[in-house]
Design a protein around this nucleic acid. Sequence first.
DNA 1: GCTATTAAAGATCATCTGTTCAATAGAATT
DNA 2: AATTCTATTGAACAGATGATCTTTAATAGC
Lengths: 214, 214
Amino acid sequence: MDGQSAKPDREGEDSALRKRLPPAERRQQIVEEAVRFFAEVGLEGKTRELARRLGVTQSLIFNYFATKDDLIEAVYEKVYIGRLSLDWPERLTDRSVPLRQRLIDFYTEYSALIFEREWMRIFMFSGLAGASLNHRYLEHLGEVILRPLLAETKALARTDTPPKMEDVWNLHGGIVYIGIRQHIYRMPEPAKPKEEIARAIDKYLLYFGINSER
Amino acid sequence: MDGQSAKPDREGEDSALRKRLPPAERRQQIVEEAVRFFAEVGLEGKTRELARRLGVTQSLIFNYFATKDDLIEAVYEKVYIGRLSLDWPERLTDRSVPLRQRLIDFYTEYSALIFEREWMRIFMFSGLAGASLNHRYLEHLGEVILRPLLAETKALARTDTPPKMEDVWNLHGGIVYIGIRQHIYRMPEPAKPKEEIARAIDKYLLYFGINSER
DNA sequence: GCTATTAAAGATCATCTGTTCAATAGAATT
DNA sequence: AATTCTATTGAACAGATGATCTTTAATAGC
């Protein structure tokens, strides 16, 4: 029943030798694999399985992270950090560029960042788990991106129904849902995601009577 | 450390006596609580905790379900069945009613059904777990609801850009995202969800130049 | 009221899982 | 080559967890 009971963990697929790495490097390696691993199987993935994938003993993981929660925290940080808060706030409010162009630029870049299986799934797992980072991220997004977007829309709107925050969330949700379908529900990717994003933006702008050149 | 080691499980909150129920009834009771329980903590929730909430021993659960997976399967069925496939397909294609009204009727009813914490979360948990029911549901939705909706839109569209399936998904996603924000990310519910749904629909229709009366 | 039936409890198993720690071995320094 | 340092391993523990099996007792049929 057990062919090799002498080997406890460490089923190194690529085998090779057990390399001795500088701590910083090993730590990074663990976190990177953990991101992939947890994104695939969820945050309840077992440390033994993670160790197996790393080709390392399970106890080594606890040499770098006191508890599993610490590891998950490191995964959150790795995934969340740098995903937002670039120069978008200014660029989104740069009125020398037509709003349509600004929106397309933003969502092209943003979707390139988040329409990625690892991000999408860990975001959803952590959201379901009620992680505070998740809340903070969404609040941050709302304040730093969506609220300014609302202001920009208001400034150009030509209809009697004034734009509301919910309209911006609707635009955002419609676009994000493309990634959810693809990476959470594993449906096929749209043929031309960029084009769908542009159409979503045009629907939004048209509703408020905003011209493409403005 | 343990005040009452003689009682193994069965921390009946409402206490009372160990009632002897007809099997069908007990089974139903277990499934219903399991829906609530798994929706809250995820599909990896422990059977002992579920039993505790039921005020019943853990072993009793396995008297009704051979394995935990069987229980989860029953939860899926309970949650998924009856959530779709009513008379919507016909009503959505009833051209004696303006499309806008049909859309509003549909999404009012549909959102009332799915904007519910249990459904939303179990749908997401099962989607992340790759449950086949999830795929079947979405395919069914696409075929039975969204594709007819596309046909209806095409029939009334007055613009040169023809409506595409992706447009319908965008409409759908934007609306569903309201529920995701509320129940997955636990953000506050919009003040007037119905109104937001109507606005999303109007954006969609306007983009294809479809009049409200048609 | 008595008995056969069967929910439900109680006890326990085998395995899994996070965590700890002493022993080992790879590399750098002397 | 010997020594030192420490990354990594190997082994084990305690508690949890899905599942099984025997025992208890509530209910239905007579």
